[in-house]
């Protein structure tokens, strides 16, 4: 699989978002990018998409440290979204934390495909696409 239709970035750091968007453009990662500033915004937005019958983004890049609702809480709430095609969604954690406890915790979530350390580079995104096509 090459380019995907839509992806989602959940991160409170505008510089990080800028970097990811820039890398995505470089490799023509997807058609549309949805950005949420924290977990709560993301849950609300995704719930709306389901309610309006819009397909969920097939890849979500999720930061851990965020105000109001962090990445972990988002994962707990995400599986509760009703009538969704969440199984078609692949979630990657993007974090600057090299704390092993975070890495191990991420492995406990079956929803999470991988843990990618910031900064995100275009090579990292290409790898995501090829992983997706292998699946």
């Amino acid at each position: 699989m090459g380019k995907i239709e839509s992806s989602c970035i959940i991160d409170d750091d505008p510089i990080a978002i800028y970097g990811i968007k820039k890398s995505m453009k470089e490799i023509d990662f997807c058609d549309t990018i949805v950005v949420y500033k924290n977990g709560q915004d993301a849950i609300d937005g995704l719930n709306n998409m389901v309610a309006e019958g819009i397909a969920l983004p097939s890849i979500i890049l999720l930061d851990l440290n965020m105000p109001i609702m962090d990445g972990w809480e988002f994962l707990d709430d995400f599986i509760k979204i009703p009538n969704n095609n969440t199984k078609a969604v692949t979630i990657y954690i993007i974090s600057s934390s090299i704390d092993p406890r975070d890495v191990i915790k991420a492995q406990d979530y079956s929803l999470v495909s991988n843990y990618i350390l910031k900064p995100i580079k275009s090579d990292d995104l290409l790898k995501l696409l090829s992983d997706g096509s292998n699946n």
Binding site: I15, A16, G19, N65, S96, S97, I98, D99, K118, P119
Partner: peptide, 13 residues
């Protein structure tokens, strides 16, 4: 490490 890394990764990027 986390807080400094997030800034340093931004800066390097």
């Amino acid at each position: 490490s986390h807080n400094l890394r997030s800034h340093s990764s931004n800066l390097s990027m």
